[in-house]
Design a protein around this nucleic acid. Structure first.
Lengths: 222, 222
DNA sequence: GAATAAAAAACGGACGTTCATTTTTATTGT
DNA sequence: ACAATAAAAATGAACGTCCGTTTTTTATTC
């Protein structure tokens, strides 16, 4: 049998990794055996080792490819956002986060596996310097918004966008994976509205806000 | 040997569970063997089964007790909060969340183990109906704040407090366990300040806020 | 028949659990 | 106070199974 084409090899790997991914997600990394993977992939046990050196290598390959998929989705998300700090944009960011979580919940399960088994070695890059990345993507837009005077003084656009991003993702992750059914007490739609409004307007009334600001000023708190 | 006193049994269990907890956290549930636990606890392998029916039962007992500890800490936290919607209170909530995460990061690792191995069976209760629980704890305070006119119209105090609680915890968890070193781009202190201000004031300038509200009103969006 | 893929068998070790045995100690009788 | 006793606790070897990986064998294609 002559050497398989690169494409054929890749196809075989896809098959194996797809089976492995489902198993890892369903029952965890250690609870999934190479025999399980071989069976679900329709491949012999020994043959797995023609494609991967170790079981860890399968996990790593899966994560590597999945990270690219998610990165691409995130790039699409950000590319579709014109004015990142407009309330409508934040609301849409939240919607898209919800879709990403619901369509790819296995991705985050893999991340939790990584946290537990590998100290999040493979997923760290998702969080490391997150706000700086947003500043790179939206820097000009942030500047424009500041120049227009859209933002309250002292508000750092990068931090705000990052915080909103995290809040939305965390909301849907808790709903999807942690059993918090309607943990904000309202539907997803209403939760998105509430969170968007919080980021836009805050929660205090004008009256209260004024009195609080005075207090802060008199105390000299930042 | 007659039956050990209840206290003696409990002490022995503490010993076992303390060893098991550390191992589970360090290397995960499946990667930790009963032999590991026995060795670290200074107990024979077989003797473990005089105290627990199965390995799962050890995990469950650990979680049960840890949940009580954390619940108690949370109760203390909430009890120390007089006016839950005051910015100073939210800021303190954030600080306390940070301490809880940093002093008990193993608790959340156990939660991720639970998500992966047991579909979060044991930790669900932490999120299920979360905002309702806050409404139970702070209901009267929420009502008072609303009566005083502290809150912007349309703002639901329960959702707000829950959202802030989630945001703070998530912030510190990402910092501690997911490798997001300064993922908001600023120090923990500054992050707490920023997040508190977002929840209090929002991010938009008065001018922008007014124009946006007009737009919303004309479009009839909620 | 040479080369490569795929399958099968085999390896040594580790797993959770059980169990026959030994050790320990709270109670009892003195 | 103390030794005898009996019941419970502690032990570690053993069980059967499964693990990740390696090696050997078989099948397939040129």
């Amino acid at each position: 049998m002559p050497k398989l084409s690169e494409a054929a090899i890749e196809k075989r790997k896809e098959l194996i990794e797809s089976a492995a991914r489902e198993l890892f997600i369903k029952q965890g990394f250690h609870a999934t055996s190479m025999r399980d993977i071989a069976k679900d992939a329709g491949v012999s046990l020994g043959n797995l080792y023609n494609y991967y050196e170790t079981k860890d290598a399968i996990f790593e390959s899966i994560v590597e490819k999945y990270l690219e998929v998610i990165d691409e989705r995130l790039r699409e998300m950000f590319a579709s956002i014109d004015e990142p700090l407009e309330p409508e944009s934040l609301r849409r960011l939240g919607e898209m986060a919800g879709e990403l979580v619901n369509n790819h919940s296995d991705f985050w399960l893999l991340m939790y596996i990584d946290v537990l088994e590998f100290q999040n070695r493979h997923f760290r890059k998702m969080f490391d310097g997150l706000s700086q990345r947003f500043r790179k993507v939206f820097g000009p837009k942030f500047k424009e918004a500041e120049k227009r005077g859209d933002l309250r003084t002292g508000v750092d656009p990068g931090s705000v966008f990052t915080a909103a991003y995290m809040q939305f993702f965390n909301y849907f992750l808790v709903e999807k994976l942690f059993g918090g059914n309607r943990h904000l007490g309202v539907s997803d739609e209403q939760a998105l509205n509430s969170l968007t409004k919080i980021f836009a307007y805050g929660t205090l009334s004008d009256k209260k806000m004024a009195s609080f600001k005075k207090k802060v000023a008199s105390k000299g708190i930042a």
